[in-house]
Nucleic acid binder design. Structure first.
Lengths: 308, 308
DNA sequence: TCATTATGATAGATTTTATCTATGCAAAGA
DNA sequence: TCTTTGCATAGATAAAATCTATCATAATGA
């Protein structure tokens, strides 16, 4: 069994076609056939069923593929270690952010990052927190950005920034004051985001404190919520950074929340605690630092050996 | 980079000598030299410093070796998957038990296991719980046996059995009763085991409930404790299975604990939750079942997909 | 200091393996 | 039925891993 055979298996699983997979691997189709046959022979098990014009993994094959991906990934880490030791910042960087955070930081982050570190091939995706932590743990992701407070063996949390929650009021119920006192609007409808786990939990805490027995509606995302508020009245909670995405008129509807209700959320970077690619991960915090408002940044990031 | 090169690196790190490592790998010394040179060339970094008659890993090399071990381990899992799918029970099985449990079950376990599954190359060692869980998580161990209640991502707990705590009294303070009422001996010294984390915690709970402000002494292991009690009077707490190791005379000093003080401990098998080698792991519970007293076994093991 | 020994590196030959080109063969679709 | 699609096979070739033999060097010790 060789790493190369394993990569062939992985690629074949992606393509489900010998000719295409071979091309992707930079070899010819007969070579791929032969190598697969050899591996199957050695393991004495079929990995792909190719009897009926379709290339599909066998039951055992599917498990082998998953494990092959692990093995190849671990092997590729060796090159990353070397690059890291040389202080170079290059190679692949797989980053994720939770849906309730991504829209506020990713656009600018990507722009800044690609400019600063052109040798890094950056992959960014939105991902829910739970999934994100799993992917970090198993090495498919290098880092993830989501709400602070996730504790998990083998994963470090590195605080990034703190942002306030604000209230977005409908025009109807707008008062001529700068701060929002929850008491003012107890009779109004509060709208909150559905499914955005981390944002909703925060919002719920607020709700529980405020809206005793009141009806609560959920929408798919904050933009929709704001449109709902605009049309139907009531109010919703938005994170501070969402203000940047509002238009001139809408910004007039934003109020600070008065009092001590849970009114902020902390956001952290999550990484594997194996200490590989420290330099690479520093580039993430370096980049964030460049465009985040100074007041929101958490200085104590330094204590984790990651500078900021 | 090939898996073979990585195994050469690993072996060379073990031997720290080219000729010996080459022999261990079944190749000649020049081949090993060449292969290492090739890998170092490819990575463009020295893995071993061999300038001064001694073969030692460089700083980067040390990290590479650790990662190489991971990669090779993950790759070797593929063969395990295949063996598992074929229903065969063979190959290596690395098992650990915590020091406060090992002496009671390992001797008989090993005897029974080797008899039933001669194709398995069983490795057993004593290990503290914390270390054990780490080793299971990183794949160096297949399974570990210790006190129940350790929760950790990626690791399953499978309850094995429950055993009572008993009291071992000195001859002096022996009473002519079958049960031990803690009140009877509040003025006596209670001796407990030092360092045996899991046993001590249980014992401490008991102590706290009982000996308010009383002096407590600690000894290295239970055998010593019993000798201390025999000589100095007082009492100590021992797990039920320890009785089997006591001699005729000593057994007369054992009493049940009366009342509701924490008086039992649960023991579990810990395994990685990746579901590979299910058959193999079933052999562990199968074997335990064969010689454990029926009343101590936990029936609900079945719910984890592992039969018992 | 100078042979001796131990240990890794190098050279060149040889074997093994991976890969290529060309072709065969079987199933699906027209 | 005939064509197309797609994997397997054969035989040749290129690349690699490995071998034997030998060299170079640093530590060892008389």
């Amino acid at each position: 069994m060789t790493l190369q055979q394993l990569t062939y298996v992985i690629e074949l699983n992606r393509c489900r076609n010998f000719a295409l997979a071979a091309e992707a691997c930079g070899i010819t189709q007969p070579t791929l056939s032969a190598m697969l046959a050899k591996l199957e022979d050695e393991l004495d098990v079929r990995i792909f069923d190719r009897s009926n014009k379709k290339v599909t993994p066998t039951t055992t094959g599917a498990k082998i593929i998953v494990q092959a991906e692990r093995a190849v990934r671990e092997a590729s880490r060796i090159s990353e270690i070397v690059a890291e030791e040389k202080g170079s910042v290059s190679g692949p960087l797989r980053l994720a952010a939770s849906p309730s955070i991504a829209p506020y930081i990713l656009p600018e982050f990507i722009r800044q990052y690609l400019k600063s570190y052109p040798q890094v091939s950056l992959t960014v995706e939105e991902m829910r927190t739970e999934n994100m932590l799993n992917e970090i743990a198993n090495g498919k992701l290098d880092a993830g950005i989501t709400i602070s407070g996730n504790v998990r063996d083998g994963i470090f949390e590195i605080p990034l920034y703190t942002e306030k929650f604000l209230v977005y009021l409908s025009e109807d119920c707008k008062r001529d004051q700068n701060e929002f006192r929850p008491e003012d609007l107890e009779h109004e409808n509060m709208w909150i985001v559905k499914e955005a786990q981390c944002l909703r939990e925060s919002a719920f805490s607020f709700c529980k404190a405020r809206a005793k027995g009141k009806q609560i509606y959920e929408a798919g995302n904050i933009d929709t919520l704001i449109r709902i508020v605009d049309r139907n009245g009531g109010y919703t909670i938005i994170p501070e950074m969402h203000v940047a995405l509002l238009n001139e008129r809408q910004r007039k509807n934003v109020r600070r929340i008065e009092g001590d209700y849970l009114s902020e959320r902390r956001v952290s970077l999550y990484i594997k605690d194996d200490c590989i690619r420290q330099n690479m991960l520093n580039t993430i915090t370096d980049t964030l630092r460049r465009f985040m408002p100074e007041g929101m940044l958490n200085r104590r990031i330094a204590q984790y050996g990651i500078k900021l």
